[in-house]
Amino acid sequence: MEALYAITTGILTASGVYLTLRGRTFPVVVGLTLLSYAVNLFLFSMGGLTTHGAALVGTSEHYADPLPQALVLTAIVIGFAMTAFAIILAMRSRGDLGSDSVDGSRTDREDPRENKA
């Protein structure tokens, strides 16, 4: 099970990295989101994979590690804030520059009003 978990994390990471290397804003944001899922899974597994572990004190002798869980919980919320900020920034850049590319060169060449219509 551990091997499969690790492979899954790896593939999600790889997909996310591939997307962040694209030249347009939307795939980059989707890639960031995917990457943050992978990171959360990775962080979460740092406490080990516990089946039927207790989340509450006093219900069992067999606890799931609460520390990575607490870290990941806030990471999820912060990840949402980051995704939201990045996508709105992408929208703003499209609104102001008329382009959604992130490779730097294109926006300089294009007339900003061209795509606005």
Partner: peptide, 16 residues
Amino acid sequence: ATGFGGAVASLNFAVL
């Protein structure tokens, strides 16, 4: 991406 994913997977497996 494959290199990165491979490294993360190995790392994760090593820890687990």
